[in-house]
């Protein structure tokens, strides 16, 4: 009578593999964004080297958040924007962006803008690359994500709501910006002034964050 017996060394290796696979994966190294409430919502910050999709409708504060991250990135390194002509440099400077360390790659075609982002991330010199709202094939977004992961770069894709499927599936982190309330001065017209707005950032999906969480931020004009 014969019985199937696992050889001890192979059995031990198999057990080790099983244990390793079932163990919770180690949390990715996180980089704080600097906005305390957003870092709290993100449970520490954004993983270094990832594709972040930031969706929202017009006037939702997407560009304000992107400008803030650009300001952080240009403190010690370089950042880039693939510009479809909508960025306003004086407002970027006001947000603290070091324009001497910000590369602006102009373009109008979605594919050309994504190619520029591809080159910028592949170059490895950028801390953050911002892509404007555009429609692209899912494969292109997946490529951008893998490049960002391999080169430890933040790729921030701005998008309209609702997020297109390709970007939603490819993004490591999915954020949604929503305008809570614009703020106007109480002075009567014509002395009324636009003072800013309150924005809610929802963390819709991030591998290291459990459940949905939100951050409330005030933007001051």
């Amino acid at each position: 009578m014969s019985a199937f017996v696992c050889e001890p060394p192979r059995y031990a290796a198999f057990e080790r593999l099983k244990t390793a696979l079932s163990a919770p994966s180690s949390p990715p190294p996180l980089r704080a964004t600097g906005l305390a409430c957003l870092d709290q919502a993100l449970e520490g910050g954004l993983p270094r080297g990832c594709l972040v999709a930031l969706e929202g409708r017009a006037s939702s504060g997407r560009y304000a958040l992107a400008a803030y991250l650009l300001a952080r990135a240009t403190r010690n390194g370089f950042a880039a924007i693939c510009d479809d002509g909508s960025w306003y440099p004086p407002a970027l400077a006001q947000a603290g962006v070091d324009l001497n360390r910000l590369l602006i790659v102009p373009g109008s075609e979605p594919l050309a803008l994504l190619r520029s982002a591809d080159l910028l991330i592949r170059g490895g010199a950028m801390a953050l690359v911002v892509v404007p709202p555009l429609r692209a094939r899912p494969a292109l977004w997946r490529r951008l994500r893998s490049l960002a992961q391999n080169h430890a770069t933040w790729a921030l894709a701005l998008a309209a709501t609702p997020l297109e499927d390709g970007l939603a599936l490819a993004a490591d982190v999915q954020l949604r910006a929503q305008l809570e309330a614009p703020r106007w001065s109480a002075t009567p017209a014509p002395l009324t002034q636009f003072l800013g707005y309150d924005v809610r950032i929802d963390v819709l999906r991030a591998r290291h964050v459990r459940g949905r969480r939100s951050a409330y931020i005030s933007a001051v004009a």
């Binding site: 960025w87 306003y88 947000a95 603290g96 004009a221």
Partner: peptide, 22 residues
């Protein structure tokens, strides 16, 4: 241009509404 900025003090990072040119 790879040195640290121009010597002009930069404002702190701030969450400021951005004008988006159309």
């Amino acid at each position: 241009v790879v040195q640290k900025s121009t010597g002009v003090a930069l404002p702190d990072e701030a969450f400021i509404p951005q004008l988006r040119l159309l």
